[in-house]
Design a protein around this nucleic acid. Structure first.
Lengths: 408, 408
DNA sequence: GCCCATTTTTTCGAGCCTCGAAAAAATTAA
DNA sequence: TTAATTTTTTCGAGGCTCGAAAAAATGGGC
């Protein structure tokens, strides 16, 4: 049950700390690493020598146009891009985005493929992912890790996609299938969780330990950072904000249930409501983005059913956030995805709704930021997820590394 | 930012592991501790010698009627009750429960005081807590730690009570006040969180890493264990399940807002609804338990407004749980407090409501257990919270301990 | 009763790891 | 060219854990 700390763990952890510092802060001298990790210079000297010998870190040549001070110049250490590479695949409705990322985080190769995800067979879908990764890796070193980001629900272990709106097929074990094919660890991740990870990397001062990332798109998703950790469910990717119940017995949701937040705030729900249809009408599928923008323009111009639809969407999101704040406490919110383009209409009803809830006590202090383009975030978050996992893996084999060094 | 692991941490952590193993599993021989912690016998020998020399552990004399095997008999180590004691104070409506607990977890002294919490002044309330602890500690060693459990919201740091239904006074800094008076660390904890802690200690196989403890009383509270850790908000004790919004603009809650779960499921809400009053009537205060039992009996006997009130309560709880499950995934639920006595009427509407939600996918697998008496759990959870914090504190001073040993 | 088998616990030396201090290295300023 | 300065490495000390061996403490069998 409770497991003691062995002696080898110490080195492993400190190696991990060094890698984490370099990954987060970029090129750092040994002295700077010592300051960041609070380890002694001698320890950093030893660890970085190991990491350089292994090819994990490299000494940067140019000290950059840094003003030359007196004394021995610092030599910056950086992640060795050639150390390994990771593959990121993002699967969305009718599209597949594949990216190869070097160990230092630089994007090496990118491919985008269109494919009919809603009508494809299960095996064809898996095959498409395999093909994409194969194409990425062709001619280069095989990826050391693979992250597949999907809309929908994944399992907490990251081995399978349990359900996704992009395909009628449920419970696809992408993890084992890809791992067997490419002989590398694979994790399947929820797209919104990757957005949250990316926000933290990209704007660490704004999105530090606690924040909500709400994806407003066809569906409604959420990624949540709590106490510096990505929040996940106990069995699944969790955080299904869009399927919290806003109005019991209310509007028909794409998931088949009634009254979910998404059934009011998903773009299909807005389109349905604006069209004046009953809230239990089957939701329209695959709405072109242009249609929604036209709807938003109309809503801004005229106080008609379109505007009412956006107001109802904002209200649903606001009440949902209020319940969320009752559980997690208020924190900054990032509104991501196409829906962010209509946030000017959503903000007021959202704030009004939150003010009606327990989370509204400090409603003035709740800050919203918008980011309409979600794809770069999903890819960046996935890449960082893969790379930090790789860092952990690289930190482990102390025995192997020191043995190799002795031989040399 | 990222901080490396120093060498001293190693011993400290392993000492903590040893204490945790003995606390969780009871009297253990050195060999058993080694097995539980996965540390070597030699390490356990060294650590336990230190802990015994400090007076933290003691060798148990009687090997109990354990069947005598061949070989050197194991000598069990246990927590030394005289090592320290902790004080637990539970503040509820009109009552104060104080308990002194020895280091091994045995209850040494208990006191219960009645007091008019709703009408008392702020200082009088603090004074009552001080008096209770003074009385507990009189004649013995001063408590090494104090835990104060209260209904309502506390801050995440455990220093203050932000809001409680038992008093009109908000934001009382019990922590600093008591700490200054008794020269010991103090934490202020939410009662439902303490229930969750207690459930985990008392039935570790049933309530392991993930479960919900729902307190059904005058108000509705929740304690939540997620991934083995007590869930708390980022700024407050969090998990205000009772104030998630069940029906936007719905029934008037004790908190002043409309449509909270508690406004349907708190006992005041059930009484109000059963009495046929409007759902926006001011909620009745301080309902005697007998009245509620009579209401429940009536509801069981006749299909009238009383039964409808319980059904509506169950529905609110069920929808709330459904939203909770959408975020955290389904997990076992413990229904604690007086409301558990009416759970026979609540279960069906709860299950029906959950089945209407995203969390209902596995609604058959969701298990409920009831525990009508919440006070023993609150006290036990508070005591274990104090004692495990003390264990951590005791694990730290390695340098001091070994220095002392050298002198001897 | 005595000796042996058996199991627990302690002791001891080896191997790592981190740290502080001192030495070495690599510059700029004078 | 030398002195000052800053970074990095080296070296020895001190801790910690571990495995193996020794010591301790008991029951079983003759």
């Amino acid at each position: 049950m409770t497991v003691g700390v062995r002696h080898d763990d110490l080195r492993r952890r400190n190696r991990a700390m060094v890698l984490a510092a370099v990954r987060r802060l970029g090129q750092l001298s040994r002295t700077e690493i010592a300051a960041a990790t609070e380890l002694s210079n001698s320890t950093i000297s030893a660890i970085s020598a190991d990491l350089i010998a292994e090819g994990t870190l490299v000494e940067a040549k140019a000290p950059e146009g840094v003003l030359a001070r007196r004394g021995r110049p610092q030599v910056a250490l950086g992640l060795n891009p050639a150390r390994a590479s990771v593959a990121v695949v993002v699967l969305t409705l009718n599209q597949l985005w594949a990216t190869l990322v070097a160990y230092d985080g630089a994007v090496t190769r990118e491919e985008t493929t269109r494919l009919p995800t809603l009508t494809m067979g299960r095996d064809a879908l898996v095959g498409a992912v395999v093909d994409a990764i194969e194409k990425l890796a062709s001619g280069g070193q095989p990826p050391a890790r693979i992250v597949l980001a999907v809309q929908g629900i994944t399992d907490a272990g990251g081995t399978r996609m349990l359900w996704s709106p992009i395909t009628p097929h449920a419970d696809i074990a992408f993890g084992p299938l890809l791992a067997a094919r490419f002989d590398a660890p694979v994790t399947v991740q929820n797209d919104c969780n990757m957005i949250a990870v990316a926000l933290k990397w990209r704007w660490p001062q704004r999105y530090r330990d606690d924040f909500f990332a709400i994806l407003l798109s066809d569906g409604i998703g959420m990624g949540l950072m709590q106490k510096g950790q990505l929040f996940t469910g106990t069995h699944s990717s969790g955080g299904e904000f869009g399927h919290m119940i806003h109005r019991p017995g209310g509007a028909l949701c794409r998931c088949g249930r009634l009254g979910c937040v998404e059934a009011y705030a998903g773009s299909y729900a807005v389109v349905r409501a604006a069209a004046g249809g009953g809230e239990n009408d089957a939701p329209p599928a695959d709405i072109p983005e242009a249609e929604i923008e036209a709807l938003a323009d109309r809503a801004r111009a005229v106080d008609g059913p379109e505007r009412a639809a956006f107001m109802r969407a904002g209200e649903a999101i606001g009440y949902g956030l209020g319940s969320l704040f009752a559980l997690f406490d208020p924190a900054p919110v990032a509104v991501v995805g196409p829906g962010a383009l209509a946030f000017d209409m959503l903000e007021q009803p959202i704030r009004e709704a939150i003010a009606q809830t327990a989370g509204g006590q400090h409603s003035g202090a709740i800050s919203f930021a918008t980011e309409p383009d979600e794809m770069p975030l999903i890819r960046e978050g996935s890449a960082m997820t893969a790379l930090t996992a790789l860092d952990e893996e690289i930190s482990a084999p102390v025995a192997a590394a020191s043995a190799r060094r002795e031989v040399a």
